[in-house]
Every structure is written in structure tokens, then in C-alpha cells.
Design a protein around this nucleic acid. Structure first.
Lengths: 247, 247
DNA sequence: AAGTGGTCTAGACCACTTC
DNA sequence: AAGTGGTCTAGACCACTTG
């Protein structure tokens, strides 16, 4: 963990860089076996930043449940939570989720359409009803096992002059939005439910009796701007974890 | 929003008190219509605390998705998120969840048992396999509609000299743990899935085809100490929302 | 008594957006 | 140029836990 590593980290703010660094060190680095983190003043000195920045970063880690800070004791690591990999409260691309548990991700059965927005989608994406949206349905595989069926809807206007039909929609939608629309997804507001879905989706996911987990979500970029509406159907291939906090 | 209100707020740390205050003001108080919050220096002056504390509190609000802080612009309120009421990433007692959406909460079909912990529960609660646990099953109603079936398991030793069979188990388990064991639940690690449950549970919840949402959770008090293992089966009476963040 | 995190002061400069 | 949030300095004291 050297100072010069920090400048190359993701994130524009120093505290987010330190946050990422500490998460990495907690998961697989020099704190991979640690039950405590060093004192705030120590960390500040080691990483060459002020205690302010360290406290910001530790605050982020605490919010994510990775650590607990206790007066008089120190910064205690919560290993149960550091070691989780499929967290429902973290927004990831489908590919990253699949790779995160050690499988090769791929997509097939891709259907690309352009449609007018219905009332529901128009409201969610804050666009006019009837405005054109691009809808991409696909099936995601983990290795050879079908694991997710997704329907992603994006306002056509976000593509500007880009011809969306020429893009490779087997790529993660996050990447398309980032490369061709210059938009970065920061978070998503998600509704969770259990469903039997449609016979078509059940067939594609190769399930029989078993119900599916449905995530209906609106994804936002900077300043709460909605840019993506999606439905994702999950088989029990994934075991989603979630930290629920008292407020 | 007066200074003397602050001292009576919940939480021991000043920043958590300010956090609660600001959430209340954002939901139903003087910022209920606000698109922005005042500048940090202004808030600090108004509330009689330093900018440090304000920044801690705003950090909490940002982490919960209520606001976004932008350099050069200010603190922007995310009304979509402030106005949510059933958040899956917030840990609430069943009663509070039901009352939160405007219904009267009650419990029936209560079954109380004492059992030895099986391997799974022993591991989750960090107790010896075979150690005695108290299991309380019940059905929660929203008004007259069955909405949740829950199974709560607590290590017997936590009750010390208290005779648990004499307690009123229609009360929230949080309250029993707090009053009789002196333990406060801070958060829970939850596994989310879709299930058809058992015929008994389906019958009690009065559902036909519709699958249920299952939350399997371990609840923790201070220093990551597990004190409660529970299974909760939810009908589609609840519409759970969740903020998923990119990290 | 020593060490920890939580709060505070009273500034300062930087990066960014808006006017 | 003015105002915002992000970072920083160089301290200080308090509340709490441990030796």
C-alpha cells in the first residue's frame, strides 16, 4: 500500500480513492486477515492524507457495513460482511455479478426493439409518454447456466447521433451508456418482488416450479437523472445478500 | 427547527442526532418542499454545531440516497428517495413496517418453542450446535390482511434469569430483546430469495399461485454480535424498495 | 494513564458551477 | 467574481475502553 498507488485509483475525490483502496486491502490486501484497522492518525500518516479524508473514507466503509467504529476501542473489521460477494445493495452490471462468483459471463437471445414509452416507463424515466425508447432483452449465462433474463429500456434521445442498432448489445448496457452517451450510472432505485414471470421467460431460464426474483429498477446518473429502466428476472443461481441498517 | 430540539433527539452522537433531525425536516418539516439544503456553513450556524458535524450528517444522508452533494452547486435533495416508505435496505420491526404504510399491525397464530440449534443456526448465531434456542413463529396482519409469516430464533442464554415463556410474544421481538436482554439490534445481514414456502405457510398467508419473498436474516448488535436469526415470508402486500449504489 | 474515536475551532486553498 | 462542496492544517477537548 504505497502512496503512489493512490493517484491511479478510480474516483475523482480523494476520499473515494482511499475508500476503494481500503476495501481492496480489506478483501485481499494487507488487511485481509486484520480484525482491526490502524488508528485514524496512523492511517492518515501512512497514506499521506489528513485525518479528515481518512474519516470520510472510514465513514463510507462503515455505511457499507465493512467496519464498525467504537470510541475507546478502534476500528473493528466485520469480516462476515467484507467477504460477501453478491450484495443486492450494491449496483453491478450483470457481467460483473457473474464473474464475481467465478463464472464466465455471456449473453444470448438478444432482442433489440424501438418502441414508444408507455405511461409507466415515461414517468419513471421522466420523459414524455410516447417518446421513443430503445429496449434490449437478453438472457445472461453463467458458464452454460442461464441465470438472468433482462429487459433494459433507454430513451432514444440519449444516443444523439449514434446509430444504436450498430452497437454490440451483448456488451453490458452500462458500458454502452458510458462510451456512446457519456453517462455514468451512479445508483438505482429498485423494487424487489417474487414472481412466476411469463412462460417464455421461464422457458428461457429453464426453470420448472421454482419462482424467480424480479428486480424492477430505475438507474440514475449525476443529479438524480434517470437514464435506464430495467426488469431483471433471477433464478436461484444467485444468492443475494443485503445489509439492512437501522436508522 | 430549534437548537433545543436537538438535545432531545435519539442517538448518542451529535452527528446522528443531526442526521435524524434533517431526515425529519426533509420528510415532513421545513425542507419538505426543498430542492436544496442550505450551504454547510449556514446549517452549521443555524444548528449551533461545527461544519464537521454537519458534514458527517450530510454524509449519512448522502449514503442513504436522500441527497447528493455537488461541488459548485450545493446539496441537492433527491425527493424520489426521501418519499419512499418500505425500504428493504432499512431494518425495521414488522410492526413499524406495517404502520409505516398506514395499517394497524397485529400478530396471531403464535407458536413458541424451545429447541436445540441445528448446524446452520448454530453457525449463524455463533453458538454451539445443540445449544438451546427460543423459536417464535407468528403471522403478522396489516389490518385484517395477513402480510408476513415469521420465524424468529434467539439463543436461550440471552434471557439469563428471565422466564421467556412469561413474556408477551405478540410484541415485536426487538422490544423483547431490548427490555429483557438489554440488547439493541443495529443491523442485519439478509439473504433474499423467491419461494413457494410450505403449504402451511401459504395457507396461513392465504395465497394461491403467487410466490412469496423470503428474507433469511441474522441480526447484530454492537460489535457484530449475532443475536437473532429469522425467516420472514412476505406476500405481495409490501412493495419493497431498495437503493443500489455503485462502489 | 494511555489510547481510541467523536467533536470542535478557525482558519486556508482547491475544484467546480453559475452569474 | 462569488458561492458551493472537498480537502487540509494544527491543534484542542470529550467520552469511552483497556491495561
Amino acid at each position: 500500500m504505497e502512496k503512489n498507488e493512490i493517484s491511479s485509483l478510480s474516483g475523482s475525490l480523494m476520499s473515494t480513492k482511499i475508500t476503494s483502496l481500503l476495501i481492496r486491502e480489506l478483501k485481499t490486501g494487507i488487511y485481509a486477515q486484520a480484525e482491526r484497522l490502524p488508528a485514524e492518525m496512523e492511517l492518515a500518516a501512512e497514506l499521506g492524507v489528513s485525518r479528515t479524508v481518512i474519516r470520510d473514507a472510514l465513514g463510507n466503509l462503515e455505511n457499507a457495513g465493512f467496519i464498525e467504529r467504537v470510541r475507546g476501542i478502534g476500528t473493528v473489521v466485520n469480516r462476515n460482511i467484507v467477504e460477501l460477494n453478491s450484495r443486492l445493495d450494491f449496483k453491478l452490471e450483470y457481467n460483473d455479478m457473474i464473474q464475481g462468483i467465478g463464472f464466465t459471463a455471456s449473453a444470448d437471445n438478444i432482442i433489440l426493439k424501438e418502441e414508444p414509452a408507455d405511461e409507466n416507463i415515461a414517468e419513471k424515466l421522466e420523459i414524455d409518454q410516447g417518446a421513443r425508447i430503445v429496449c434490449c432483452q437478453k438472457r445472461m449465462l453463467a458458464g452454460t447456466v442461464p441465470a438472468i433474463y433482462s429487459i433494459d429500456c433507454i430513451p432514444l434521445e440519449l444516443f444523439g447521433k449514434v446509430n444504436y442498432t450498430a452497437l454490440d448489445w451483448s456488451q453490458p448496457v452500462f458500458d454502452l451508456l458510458s462510451h456512446y452517451c457519456g453517462l455514468t450510472i451512479l445508483n438505482s432505485l429498485t423494487s424487489v418482488s417474487a414472481t412466476n414471470a411469463t412462460p417464455m421467460i421461464r422457458a428461457k431460464l429453464d426453470v420448472k416450479e421454482q419462482p424467480l426474483l424480479l428486480l424492477e429498477e430505475v438507474s440514475f446518473c449525476k443529479l438524480n437523472r434517470p437514464i435506464l429502466y430495467s426488469l431483471s428476472f433471477y433464478t436461484d443461481f444467485f444468492h443475494f445478500s443485503l445489509l439492512r441498517k437501522k436508522f
